Amino acid sequence: MSHRSRLLAAGLLLLTMAAGCADPTTVSDAASTPDPTSGSTGPSAPATVPVTEADPEVEALVPAEMKKKGTLVFATNAPYPPLEYFKEDNKTLIGYDIDLGNAIGAAMGLKVEWKNISFDAIIPGLQAGKYDAGMAGFSIEHERLGTVDFVSYYLSGGGFLIKKGSGIKVGSFDDLCGYRVAVQKGVSQVDALVEASEHCVAEGKKAITVNQIPDQNVVVLNLASGRADVVVGDKPQVEYAAGHADGLCVISTYQTGHSIAGIAVPKGKKDLTAALQASINHLIENGDYAQISKVWNTGVAVEGATLSDQYQKVSQPWGVGPDGTVNKSLVFTDPAAIPPGHTYYYQPVREGCA
């Protein structure tokens, strides 16, 4: 269940437990600041946003009309940290998607313009020609490929957040029997929790208490305050929460048959998808992609972790390596490339968390 394979797309997870959101990078001047996950699952070394230069080979692929205009217009939907949200001024967009999107545009020799709109309006806006592309952590889904094309850029999924040292070991939805689980109202994980709870009862175990909360920030606060035992959410968001709240950690993660995330592009815009793909692959090759991913702890591998053999067979054709990082961006146009529905692939429980 990757980011925004959801029924609703409300803004969420802004977590330094009492105050406003932490800005792990200055973005505008790329000044050195601590990694946002220092002290949790990420490396502790400082990370900075690189200054990406235009690449002539990528520039040559940019559609003539866009090159003449000189701008690449991305539609996005904030707040959704760590992918896209606002600085404390409530005006300046920051996040993984923002930094990576700006770097993609820079490699194409273009200025990037961001339009923050409702999530449900992004794809219709692309179809109407209002925006060049949509970058809002879209999972590349079977159903979406009927209306837009995608250029892949990271592997997402979901995860289970607990209090560190709680003794709760959750490696799948079926392990949640008897627990109080906080989840954002309307997301697709709700269906998985209801189904798992029914399975618990059928086996004579206690049902899952599913607490649906509209605001993801409040979802996590329920866990921190002891009103929930577990939080279920998308992988980037639970990892971000663990890195910004003392005493919380991600006990395990999972992927689905559509956990690859991509940039949405109007159907049939082959020149644009080729340029975006080339730009992302250039950033992968020159190291800028890895550096931006490290700043936001998105699209990076947990040290020593590998995807299961079963899931490697699913994700390898997507350009995903055994550690879960994208090593090659691909263009997706055919709905047959991604299976419909939800099939879960669980990763091992992490040591030192429960």
Rank of each mutant, 00 (worst) to 15 (best):
I251L: 11
S118F: 01
T25Y: 00
E351W: 03
P124H: 13
G299S: 08
S40L: 00
S315K: 10
H142A: 03
T41H: 04
V349E: 13
F86T: 09
D35M: 07
V210E: 04
M66S: 05
I213Q: 15
N90A: 04
A207E: 11
G129K: 02
H258L: 07
C177F: 13
P63G: 09
A18N: 11
I251N: 14
V219G: 11
S172H: 11
T298L: 01
Q184S: 15
T306W: 06
V58Q: 09
I284V: 12
R180T: 14
A337K: 13
G171Y: 15
Y153V: 06
V250M: 08
D132P: 09
R4N: 15
K130G: 02
D174N: 13
K185A: 15
V27P: 00
I260H: 09
M66G: 04
T52Y: 10
I338L: 08
T76L: 01
L272K: 00
G233A: 14
V194P: 03
A22E: 05
G70Y: 13
P63V: 12
K111T: 14
T298M: 02
V170S: 10
L72Q: 09
T253A: 13
M66Y: 04
A45C: 03
A336W: 01
A75T: 12
L248V: 04
S315L: 13
I213L: 15
I260M: 15
E65A: 15
S259F: 04
H282V: 02
S279Y: 05
T71A: 11
E195F: 07
G257S: 08
I338T: 14
S152T: 15
K130T: 08
N222F: 12
G157R: 07
Y254A: 13
L223S: 05
P335M: 10
D132G: 11
T325P: 00
K87P: 01
K111M: 07
D309H: 02
K294S: 05
K111Y: 05
G95D: 08
Q255C: 05
L161T: 10
S156L: 11
K69V: 13
L283K: 06
D23T: 11
S188K: 06
L161E: 10
H342W: 13
I98R: 06
T306E: 12
D174V: 06
G20T: 09
K91S: 12
G42D: 03
S166D: 14
T147G: 14
A19D: 09
T33Y: 03
K267D: 02
V51M: 05
T48H: 03
L12H: 06
T37C: 12
Q310A: 15
T92L: 11
V58G: 09
F74N: 08
N77E: 12
P82E: 04
Q255H: 11
K270H: 02
S40F: 02
R180L: 05
P56T: 12
V58M: 10
I284K: 09
A301E: 02
G146R: 12
V331G: 07
Y289V: 01
P348G: 10
V326I: 13
S172R: 12
V183R: 11
N297G: 00
K206Y: 05
D288A: 08
Y346Q: 04
Q184R: 15
L155R: 06
A47K: 00
L155T: 08
F138C: 09
E141C: 04
E195Q: 14
K68A: 14
S38H: 12
A305Y: 01
D271K: 10
